[in-house]
Design a protein around this nucleic acid. Structure first.
Lengths: 228, 228
DNA sequence: CGCGATCTTGAACACGGTCAACTGACGTGG
DNA sequence: CCACGTCAGTTGACCGTGTTCAAGATCGCG
């Protein structure tokens, strides 16, 4: 991992400015501590455990959820290859949320104290981190506002369009992609129940907006989804 | 503003590590560009206008909202004296949300390019910024999860307890405090309507948990609120 | 092949939304 | 100083979206 890659897995990752910062290695530790493989269902990290790290996802699919007192965990976000998870640990070396693999995944782990060290020595890295966290903050705000105000059908439709956009940004098909999370998890993410999600999806299929497959979906008419 | 204050308004502010960073002023610009006074109802900044700044609130009360397509704006957060607003601009010198004063307010404005400059020169400032943004991200996640899963009564009760906690952290009474926002705005923040908020508050008052005043509230029994 | 988990679909219900009337506080102008 | 208009808040009645409960359907997997 000496030079900046122009192709390959790292090309689509959010962290190259960290891993390939100019002069990294001269007195500054190489940021990536190790790679980690996760099987489906395995936890990447849990809330309130000390330490904390930022993870760049190389492959797979994860969910991030916060434990809400009294209820089962609220899913805050789904994580695709190329995304980074765990920035909430940069608030005191402890994660406030937890993350679990929805399918077999592989991540690069960067312990947050290492990341801090690199950032302290490289203003460009620090600036990149700020951008990443601020970006995620903006997403979270938008998601809050949507969940609080839009009806179920709109939420599900926008959720699908958002996934499509994110896959497209990575060079994959925006028409047909996997849905590794269950209906219950989609519902949890959108403030709905499993049943409502299922019904909305069925309706969308009946209208010819999507085609449902096992653990996947094909978007037939983005326009119809947009209109929902 | 040369030395770090131990008392006064700046003592409760989130930004002293920025304003009073060691050696600030030696080739690095003084971060605070200017103070700004806002009258009730005035906008502090609007979404999508280029430039962007972070504001430390010295006095007053503001709301932060994101424009949701098709709907009126979704209120993401209320801002108390000592809080900072505008971190979302550190994602590309443009605000994704807007902020408006709910009562006459006064803020310190730090243009985001200046803040970047100071952060680049002072690792401690950069680290402090990361903490602030990550903290806000964590709050946003928790709020999302709550709004998506908890019933109306619980949301309102927790909202009041949260405000009480934040006032207490600033040395003010956690029993009795002002509510400068309208019922509609509370509802917007929690994904409810004005009427539902009003009903829940009335019920809480009938149960002896709170006492409603004009533009203020007194918490009589935190335990009853917690139980809601 | 049969068990279990996930998903779908239906029917009844409830929480919160919508619509509407009323109240009270405040500010303005006669 | 009071009459009036406005606006925020309260309260009631009704309604609709989404939840709950329950019964099948479908598929993966041992």
């Amino acid at each position: 991992m000496g030079n900046r890659p122009t192709t390959g897995i790292c090309a689509a990752c959010a962290m190259p400015p960290v891993c390939f910062a100019q002069g990294a290695g001269e007195g500054v530790p190489v940021p990536v501590e190790r790679r980690r493989r996760l099987s489906r269902g395995e936890k990447l990290f849990e809330a309130a455990t000390p330490g904390g790290a930022v993870y760049a996802v190389r492959a797979g699919f994860l969910k991030v959820s916060v434990p809400v007192a009294g209820t089962d965990a609220g899913i805050v976000r789904f994580v695709l290859p190329g995304d980074a998870v765990g920035f909430d640990a940069m608030r005191g070396q402890v994660h406030a949320c937890e993350s679990q693999a929805l399918e077999d995944s592989e991540v690069c782990e960067i312990a947050s104290w290492r990341l801090e060290t690199v950032a302290d020595a490289r203003p460009l890295v620090a600036a990149h981190l700020r951008r990443c966290i601020a970006e995620e903050l903006t997403q979270a705000h938008a998601h809050c506002a949507a969940v609080a105000s839009l009806p179920a059908a709109t939420l599900v439709a926008r959720f699908l369009l958002d996934l499509a956009r994110r896959w497209a940004a990575r060079g994959y098909s925006e028409r047909r992609f996997r849905l590794p999370m269950g209906r219950r998890e989609i519902g949890n993410h959108l403030g709905l129940t499993m049943e409502t999600v299922s019904r909305v999806l069925s309706t969308l299929q009946a209208r010819g907006a999507v085609r449902l497959e096992r653990g996947a979906i094909e978007i037939l008419s983005p326009a119809l989804l947009q209109a929902a």
